[in-house]
């Protein structure tokens, strides 16, 4: 007599869960299939544009009332690219990357090749974001296509991109939070294509950009025990290999990137958390205990605070 009721108590939730799981799976495939084909082809064009074109120009970075101006040059030659960035405001330092092989595709850039991913049966970026073509505008004198990239969950920001109609080059990136508040904006003020890079401003400090290889990590600072991040928002993957004992691990979903830094302390620290933001970049620092070890965890990246907090929460030592 009692059995059917008992059974239903177990079966219905189970059935419900099953249905939910099923519909989630169908949704994933659906959202994948519904990826705006035109927008996707533009993103593809964008992801390949930096391998095809040489250019130089001036870019502005706006964050609130603050504006930085930088000079950018990008040269594609003999199967490799060379890039240079010089700050025209602020410190006035430069960054340079020489002879980066074109066939060297890092995890984030692979994720950007949306149609390649779709063909390989992976939803990739289309699972995390919704893309749509949103009209046209003119940036740095070039006709551009506007693409709106809306996140499908609350763990990442959205973007309004503008791509050069002719080359697909990314001319503008506006990062916005839920509710549409713009956090930062990169935009070309002028742009010229071609190999003839004009004489660049001389600067004292030029940093040679590192090349963290996807297959091996390269961090100097070590922590005492291997650790891992047990929770990541869907779609995020390591940017380079980590043996677990490096003090840093970085993750990307193709558009957003964040890095997690772990520091050991040999003494107790007062538990707590602190947050600062600069434009779209967040620094979230948390003092806590991992097992019996006092640690300081810092998440730096272009993600909302709850993402950083949940990632920090999920840190654990590897057994």
């Amino acid at each position: 007599m009692v059995t059917p009721i008992r059974l239903s108590v177990f079966v219905y939730p189970l059935l419900g869960a099953l249905l939910l799981a099923l519909s989630a799976a169908v949704n994933a495939v659906d959202s994948c299939a519904k990826a705006d084909a035109v927008a996707v082809s533009w993103l593809d064009k964008m992801s390949h544009s930096v391998r095809r074109h040489s250019y130089h120009g001036v870019v502005t970075l706006q964050r609130g009332d603050d504006m930085q101006v930088i000079q950018v040059s990008h040269l594609v030659k003999r199967g490799a690219s060379s890039e240079r960035l010089i700050q025209l405001t602020g410190q006035g330092a430069g960054v340079s990357r020489k002879a980066h092989p074109l066939e060297c595709v890092h995890p984030g850039h692979q994720l950007l090749r949306v149609s390649e991913e779709l063909q390989a049966g992976r939803c990739g970026l289309a699972e995390q974001y919704q893309f749509r073509v949103d009209g046209a505008e003119r940036i740095a004198g070039r006709p551009a296509v506007k693409i709106t990239v809306e996140p499908r969950d609350m763990y990442r920001y959205g973007y309004r991109l503008a791509l050069d109609r002719e080359t697909g080059l990314l001319l503008k990136t506006e990062t916005f939070a839920q509710g549409g508040k713009v956090l930062e904006k990169f935009q070309y003020a002028n742009l010229s294509y071609g190999d003839s890079v004009p004489g660049t401003t001389e600067v004292d400090i030029v940093h040679e950009a590192a090349h963290p290889h996807p297959a091996h990590g390269n961090d100097v600072r070590r922590v005492m025990r291997p650790w891992r991040v047990s929770w990541l928002p869907r779609g995020f993957t390591l940017t380079d290999a980590s043996d677990g004992e490096s003090g840093r691990q970085s993750f990307t979903d193709g558009l957003a990137v964040f890095s997690v830094f772990l520091e050991n302390f040999d003494r107790e620290i007062r538990a707590g958390e602190g947050v600062v933001r600069e434009g779209g970049t967040l620094s979230y620092t948390r003092g806590m205990r991992l097992g019996d070890q006092p640690v300081l965890v810092t998440v730096i990246g272009e993600v909302p605070i709850n993402t950083a907090r949940m990632v920090a929460d999920s840190l654990s030592w590897m057994e």
Binding site: V50, L61, L85, H106, A209, T252, G254, A256, G279
Partner: peptide
């Protein structure tokens, strides 16, 4: 360093 290789803006993340 990681943003520059894994997001679409090239070296521009160094502007931050």
């Amino acid at each position: 360093e990681h943003a520059a290789l894994n997001s679409p803006q090239g070296l521009i993340p160094f502007a931050r």
